[in-house]
């Protein structure tokens, strides 16, 4: 139990830290919503190391805390929708034995962006941002792939040093 609590703490802290790093990093692309999603490394890792349920908790904790710290209240809704949808997609892919951590991460990246666009449509009240969906899907695939690769190598070390 104590060990699990410690894991929760480490993962949550890492995820929030990644959120900070991401907030500081400037994105070289002038399209709103394009980002790397560094904190998803932690969520994906958590899913493989601790389990699905635990990854969900970490995801929610990180979204709420990093939104309050770095983005403000409106950002919270965008992030929450993104986190929920991306979590659902990741769990869906995770269940298949034929998919690796990279596939999970790619699905998560793409659906995170789709979730954010849906919220943007609701908040703005018009479908003005819908045309961003294809662009953000491609950027989600690219970011998800990169995040998946990093997670894959991280996972090796975490598993090796687990005991």
């Amino acid at each position: 139990m104590a060990k699990k609590t410690a894991y929760y703490g480490i993962f949550a802290a890492l995820a929030i830290l990644m959120g900070y790093v991401e907030a500081v990093l400037p994105m070289p692309v002038p399209i709103p919503g394009v980002k790397i999603g560094l904190s998803n490394i932690v969520v994906v890792l958590c899913m493989y190391v601790m389990g699905k349920k635990e990854a969900f908790y970490i995801s929610i904790v990180r979204v709420v805390i990093s939104a309050l710290l770095f983005r403000g209240f409106v950002g919270l809704w965008y992030s929450l929708a993104g986190a929920f949808l991306s979590y659902a997609a990741m769990v869906f892919v995770y269940r298949f034995k034929d998919a690796s951590i990279i596939g999970v991460s790619v699905a998560g990246g793409v659906f995170h962006n789709i979730g954010q666009i849906i919220v943007a449509c609701i908040i703005l009240g018009r479908n003005v941002v819908l045309y961003l969906i294809p662009v953000l899907m491609v950027s989600g695939v690219a970011a998800g792939f990169a995040i998946g690769l990093v997670s894959k190598y991280c996972l090796r070390y975490v598993e090796k040093n687990r005991e």
């Binding site: 892919v93 298949f96 034929d98 998919a99 690796s100 990279i102 596939g103 790619v106 699905a107 793409v110 969906i133 294809p134 662009v135 899907m137 491609v138 989600g140 695939v141 792939f145 998946g148």
Partner: peptide, 21 residues
């Protein structure tokens, strides 16, 4: 990377392309 990873990426990119065009 496994087989399904490629399929996921291909399907998502295809969806994006279709939506775009």
């Amino acid at each position: 990377m496994k087989k399904l990873d490629f399929i996921i990426i291909a399907v998502l990119l295809a969806c994006a392309g279709m939506l775009y065009f």
